[in-house]
Design a protein around this nucleic acid. Structure first.
Lengths: 203, 203
DNA sequence: ACGCTTAGCGACCCATGATTGAATAACTTG
DNA sequence: CAAGTTATTCAATCATGGGTCGCTAAGCGT
């Protein structure tokens, strides 16, 4: 995170506004679906008019793209950070899953998957695939490592297991509501534990 | 399945057409997303004009509703049937998951979840919730039964476990492509086995 | 063959929402 | 302060797509 000291320059001010637009759009896109959010709505949320947005984004699709990139970057960053902690592979994978869930349950990240479809339709589907693969391989690699360091069962099929694990954690993003009774952090912990339980090595 | 013998009556003919419309629409809605499918496209697929569709459905939302109901009925029927087979609870739950996956990977069922959002927005959200709950409870009940008949571990948290299991199987519907290399039936079997592995009782 | 009903077609109507451009307010710089 | 630059707004423009209406033609019972 880059902190600002002193007054923001014009450039910074501009970039702050742009990011605020993206954050707000991501939230709405996630809540209501890309196609159901008129630019008007985003503009109103921010207290400006629709036309003003065009100073910062070149089109609605461009805005979608930016939402996706920002979101996915956050996700990947969270996962990478958790991956590089210390401990057994199992402990690290658990940390990765928790970080993943924590990120996905933030209000402007919810339903991130829900706008992968428009992304694939209007944008570059290789970007989507690349990011999805990156997450998939992070999980697989840790599973393989864990079979070596004996924190996981030795007989896992990493490809299959990563599908099941990712399914479980992504599903959280579908039903979780930030205004619900569950706290995100303890939920993340429970789900992560649950999803990995069957793979742990038990002597 | 009800078979027809002899010539279809006018009523039957009409109903066949209506169902064909729904099937076709479900496929397109799933592939491209409800909001991205003009009625014109569905009409073209069927070789008629948009206006003709209005003989069979009262609005685009009505069509969505019918798609959802038909799809969910199929899903629930498949699950109920599998639930009532014989064997241990673990075996039955495995059968349920397989049936679930098999159903969800059919081409006009793919991305069924992808139009729950429009359903919730334009339709009756209680219907959606009710069906989701039904599936959830089917899984939970079998888990509980399995703890009793010792086909599952005795220390499962059924609520949490059902989330993980449903996540895993629903995720299949997101990435599976009918034209891909995997056969749906063996995939269903593998995923079902994988998702349950950690819960099985191992003496 | 004659009217009646129904399916389907083509041409419309109309609201929505993305995008643009001219006009204006605000701010910077010399 | 005046000229120039930037941020916003307001008022079009334009395409899309849901929904409607009147017409034709085929099917059917009498």
């Amino acid at each position: 995170m880059k902190e600002l000291t002193g007054f923001p320059t014009k450039e910074q001010l501009r970039d702050m506004k742009r990011r605020e637009i993206v954050r707000c759009a991501a939230k709405r896109f996630g809540q209501d679906g890309f196609e159901n959010v008129p630019l008007e709505a985003i503009a109103t949320d921010l207290g400006v008019t629709k036309a003003a947005l065009y100073n910062y984004v070149s089109s609605k699709n461009d805005l979608l793209l930016q939402c996706y990139e920002v979101g996915m970057d956050r996700l990947v960053a969270a996962v990478e950070a958790a991956k590089d902690t210390s401990g057994t592979a199992a402990q690290r994978l658990s940390a990765v899953l928790e970080a993943y869930i924590m990120t996905m349950t933030q209000s402007d990240m919810q339903y991130l998957w829900s706008y992968t479809r428009p992304m694939v339709m209007y944008g570059d589907k290789r970007v989507v695939q690349a990011i999805r693969d990156k997450l998939d391989y992070a999980v697989r690699d840790l599973l393989i490592e864990g079979m070596k360091d004996q924190s996981f069962r030795p007989d896992i099929d990493p490809k299959l297991a990563s599908l099941v694990i990712l399914g479980a954690v992504n599903w959280v993003g579908i039903w979780y509501r930030p205004d619900g009774p569950k706290r995100a952090d303890e939920l993340a912990q429970k789900i992560a534990r649950e999803a990995l339980y069957g793979y742990l090595f038990k002597p």
